[in-house]
Simulated assay, not measured.
Amino acid sequence: MKIVLCCASHSEAILNANLGRSPCIIDGSLPLHVEWGAPSASVAYNRALDATDAEIVVFVHHDVYLPKGWDAVLRARLAELPDDWALFGSFGVALDAGHIGPVWSSSIGLIAGSVALKPVEVQSFDELLIIMKRSAGLRFDEELPGWHMYGTDIVAIARAKGFRAYAGALPLIHNDRYHEALDSDFTACYHYMRRKWRAVLPLRSPIIKISKSGLHIWRNRWRDMRSRDFRENMAIDTEVQPEEFARRCGWVDLGPSA
């Protein structure tokens, strides 16, 4: 099974300090294709689809680290998926709104998501890592602005075409920085999703509920403002090497039977 990693990056330093240190990239087990300077995530990832030919395409953030043995675990998890799958991810929101992981996140200083014993169908992904089966024929929506919500949008696109999206136990390190509040880019993506998918709302992304009223964007802003100090204290310095996070999580070597 041919697999390629695809990353959209604006920082060679962040890429080299995280994803570029992943053993499966260093030893050549998985090739890495990088798109530089794209105007949006959707444009970057469609360009990556056009530039590669592997059946399994792994879209991954540049601040993600894949521990030793991750590629073997990926192949094992893909073998467990039902035939109707088009998308798989390391962190997703189940149809019942439960969070499926596990992944380490530096921005919140903990391992997020429950450990699933089998693939769990999801309604959205955290964009840190999304796996696509090329033969499903999916494309990202280039009208979706910026760098948010495409993990929810691509699942809705797949479901509209009769495919399913799943998440499962595929541990990784997301060495992401602390975010004080939702930015204007996030707000633009939120309202685009409200308009596009109005007929099937509500949808739950890992960050927010997308509702017809749109009131949740204001609720989240209020919640972020009230919890700012608490969340800032939870965050871990991203200058810590990702291998150290993997060690603390017990993920130094995921092994072939993880």
Rank of each mutant, 00 (worst) to 15 (best):
V57T: 11
W36A: 07
L138V: 04
S205V: 10
K133Q: 12
V4A: 15
A158H: 07
G146N: 08
H216K: 14
E143W: 00
L128V: 12
W147F: 13
V4I: 14
D96M: 07
Y65G: 05
W36D: 06
H191K: 05
L254E: 01
A156F: 04
S257M: 05
I131P: 03
Q123D: 02
G28K: 14
S184L: 09
R164E: 05
I157C: 04
I207E: 10
F59M: 15
L110H: 09
D229Y: 02
L182Y: 12
I217G: 05
L215M: 11
A8V: 07
P82R: 08
R204L: 09
L129W: 00
V60N: 09
I236M: 11
V43M: 07
K133A: 09
A169E: 03
A160G: 08
D71P: 02
R159E: 14
G151V: 09
P31I: 12
I56S: 00
A44I: 01
T187P: 00
I14H: 02
S211N: 10
A136I: 06
R77G: 02
V240P: 00
K2V: 01
R159C: 02
F186M: 14
E121Q: 15
V58S: 00
A116V: 04
M1V: 14
E244R: 13
M225A: 14
L49F: 07
V73K: 11
A165T: 10
R247L: 12
D176L: 00
R159Y: 00
R221Q: 12
N46L: 09
V4F: 02
D50Y: 00
G69C: 05
M234D: 04
A38R: 05
D27I: 09
G98D: 13
L117N: 11
P145Q: 10
W85E: 02
L201Y: 11
R223F: 12
C24M: 10
E239F: 04
Y65I: 06
K196R: 15
Q123T: 11
I157V: 15
V115D: 11
G98L: 01
L66D: 06
L110G: 08
I130N: 08
G168W: 09
G101R: 03
E12Q: 13
T238R: 06
I130Y: 03
P31Q: 11
V43D: 12
P242W: 09
S227M: 10
D183N: 15
G162Y: 03
A167D: 00
D183C: 08
F125Y: 05
A199F: 03
L203V: 12
A17K: 09
L5E: 01
R75V: 09
S184E: 15
A112Q: 13
L66G: 09
S227T: 15
L49S: 06
Y192M: 01
H99I: 14
A258H: 15
A54K: 06
G109R: 06
L110D: 11
R228K: 12
R75P: 01
P39G: 07
F163R: 03
H148G: 13
A188Q: 07
R219Q: 13
W251K: 03
V43L: 13
K2D: 15
D84F: 03
R134F: 02
P119Y: 01
M149A: 05
V120D: 06
I217K: 08
V252S: 15
H191W: 12
D153T: 13
L117F: 01
I56G: 02
L49G: 03
L215C: 04
D50K: 13
L254H: 02
H61L: 09
G20M: 08
I207V: 14
A158G: 12
G109S: 07
W104V: 05
I14D: 14
G137C: 07
